[in-house]
């Protein structure tokens, strides 16, 4: 659907150095949205309409509240589009398309492990909420640059879920120093011995998701990955945001991040062909 979403909260998230923002929009998108889906939001200057920047910005849903008719978007200011978006004030109305794409799936039983790096954490929160509501066991592996980032990007909300959390930072200021995959490998190893059903969902830098997928394949654990690509139409018409996958016969095929994804099965993805 296409709505005029009213800004009800738009505020800094954590330390200003992190350039993170929380945007809560009122509108019926929450009624049908699920974790892993996204919206395409117009980021024009709201007082004077212009076509620069031209395209909508795809932003994942970081919160879905059907009771309050609200969606939450968390984003980092890192270009002209998000610079302009950051100027939207409470009460402003933004043109929002969504919910778009296909989200994560939940296993019927067992454990859901969330593995993420940086702001890839944002779409995973509603997934954790849905999984917990369904009685699944949820575990989080989250890597970030440093303590300031993890705390700014919502660590306390995650701690509020009461799930096991494995943190890593590049500088060692919080959790284990190094990459998120180190702790993932340790636990996959342990779990391989004890048995039990696990599903992994991952979102973050491409290299991290590729490493996570490789590990999961090694341990025969199913993994869903949330991919990103430069997007044009956001509905599957322009073929701008294709990702290369292999089909069952091993043939290279293209699928569209916006319409077929952004969530794909990790083992299908041909990482070197995709940006």
């Amino acid at each position: 659907m296409l709505i005029e979403g009213q800004v009800v909260i738009h505020e800094r998230l954590g330390d200003e150095d992190q350039r993170l923002r929380k945007l809560v929009l009122k509108g019926p998108i929450a009624q049908t949205a699920k974790a892993g889906q996204f919206v395409a939001i117009q980021v024009q200057d709201f007082s004077i309409s212009s076509f620069d920047p031209l395209l909508r910005r795809p932003i994942s849903l970081a919160g879905i509240s059907s009771e309050r008719d609200e969606i939450t978007l968390l984003y980092r200011i890192q270009g002209r589009g998000t610079e302009i978006l950051a100027r939207a004030k409470c009460g402003d109305k933004l043109s929002v398309m969504g919910p778009l794409g296909k989200g994560f799936s939940l296993p019927d039983e067992g454990e859901l492990w969330l593995v993420t790096g940086g702001i890839g954490i944002f779409p995973l929160y509603p997934l954790a909420q849905s999984a917990l509501a369904q009685g699944l066991t949820v575990r989080l592996f989250w890597g970030g640059e440093n303590q300031s980032f993890l705390e700014s990007a919502g660590l306390s909300s995650w701690q509020g879920l009461g799930i096991p959390i494995h943190l890593s930072t590049l500088d060692g200021s919080l959790g284990q120093k190094g990459l998120v995959t180190v702790q993932l490998k340790e636990l996959l190893e342990k779990h391989a011995i004890s048995g039990g059903k696990i599903r992994v969902a991952t979102c973050g830098p491409k290299k991290m998701m590729q490493a996570v997928t490789d590990l999961c394949l090694d341990y025969k654990v199913p993994v869903e990955v949330s991919l990103e690509e430069r997007m044009g139409c956001a509905v599957g018409a322009c073929l701008g945001c294709v990702v290369t996958l292999t089909d069952e016969a091993g043939t290279l095929i293209h699928k569209k991040v916006c319409q077929d994804g952004p969530v794909f099965q990790g083992e299908e993805v041909v990482w070197d062909e995709s940006c």
Binding site: S50, F51, D52, P53, L54, L55, E229, R230, M231, G232, C238, L239, G240, C241, V242, V243, L252, I253, H254, E273, S274, C275
Partner: peptide, 23 residues
């Protein structure tokens, strides 16, 4: 045709460059 590799799109001032390559 599978078309061109990504990135296929680049936004420009009030414009859009595309090189989908007839997928």
């Amino acid at each position: 045709r599978l078309g061109n590799p990504v990135p296929r799109l680049a936004e420009t001032p009030a414009g859009l460059l595309n090189a989908v390559g007839l997928e």
